[in-house]
Design a binder for these strands. Structure first.
Lengths: 210, 210
DNA sequence: TAGATTGTTAATCGATTAACAATC
DNA sequence: TAGATTGTTAATCGATTAACAATC
């Protein structure tokens, strides 16, 4: 039975389901039971069925799940087919790494442009993505709306740029700056990628034993 | 009362505590109550006291916590003072972005070297970190042990390099490749930074409303 | 049909919140 | 001393696991 409010624990597992189902699909697997999927992902079959039941009924008794079909359903749930678009602001090393190496399209997102202030970068193209001057942000986005702003700027200007992105109508900010954004824009979602937090957690885990 | 096994929910909050306490310290704040800290972090005072009680007693009735002292205690807990060292394997855009822009030292980790196979990179130095040829990995690490291997290589060689790092005695792998590593090395911890999973979660959140 | 496996309801487990005696 | 705030115990809430009737 579909749920209204899905817990964040479930949401965080959805991309993993998608990834595993995609791998299975690419490996030519046609169907899989919650039991087998759970074994390969390190989850209980119960949890998988419980998770999926938040969104609908995708399986068949006695058969399991059709891999291609379930992958499709989850990609729908994740909004991969909604034509979301993104702009990268800050084309330094990290921004550039994302532009050149990260496959936005594999997450159903189209990277439409990037912005920076550094003169040597502006006007260039990285892997087919043009770098505009940040001054052009508002003008560009008014013509080419983006749903996601990827924030890879220095921390000093992070909040300012985030505010401008929100004013331009982005629905989500993918925040790679190591600060907690102060947005107060209801309805705009911030997804943080806090490298330092991640490294510190790893630090903790390898330090536990004496 | 100290706890033996600390839940991962608590561990994931520790870096945030550290970050906030550091900000408070830099802002000159001397003491803070669980109530005030909770308000500023969006947590309940109860949760903060419960979390901290896993590790010891750091406060004082009627007073609260000394900011500098608590920051120090948490940095101890997180293993920031254990002299952990790291090597980066893969000095492409992402690896380079980490080498040049990420402050390992602020997490108590010393970046001692980087490795790549590309001839133009090998021999160079990025922000004081020398790039060696991957062939030198074993030799270098036998002389200069590292506790953490930062994995920023193409996914095709990820498992192979991870295996070599483990064989060289690293205790943790900070995995930026978008695959689930297959290590089977008990005691070695993998911390994943899955960009795609993060973006998909954001995708979901901005797609919810129609 | 018999076996397998679903979706869902109930039971359990763990994490968060509330309450409060202890005490600075 | 009176007020504030801790650490901890108890209560609540939510998430995971187990069980099972339904059914392909």
């Amino acid at each position: 039975m579909k749920k209204d409010k899905v817990s964040s624990a479930v949401i965080r597992r959805l991309p993993r389901y998608y990834r595993h189902l995609n791998d299975l699909y690419l490996a030519g697997v046609e169907r899989i039971s919650s039991n087998a999927l759970g074994r390969s992902m390190g989850l209980t079959a119960s949890q998988i069925r419980q998770d999926l039941s938040c969104f609908g009924e995708f399986g068949q008794q006695g058969y399991g799940y059709n891999v291609e079909n379930l992958r499709g359903e989850i990609s729908e749930i994740l909004g991969m087919k909604r034509g979301h678009t993104a702009v990268v602001v800050g084309a330094g090393n990290l921004g550039r790494a994302l532009i050149e190496n990260f496959h936005f399209d594999r997450s159903g997102v189209k990277l439409i442009a990037a912005f920076d202030i550094a003169p040597p970068l502006v006007g260039q193209e990285f892997s087919g993505t043009a770098i505009h001057h940040v001054d052009q942000l508002e003008r560009y986005l008014s013509q080419n709306p983006a749903s996601i702003g990827v924030l890879t700027v220095p921390r000093g200007v992070a909040n300012q740029i985030a505010g401008r992105l929100v004013a331009c109508g982005v629905k989500g900010i993918w925040n790679f700056t190591n600060i907690e954004l102060n947005l107060n824009a209801p309805g705009v979602v911030v997804e943080n990628v806090h490298f330092a937090d991640s490294l510190l957690a790893l630090n903790y885990m390898i330090s536990e034993a004496p």
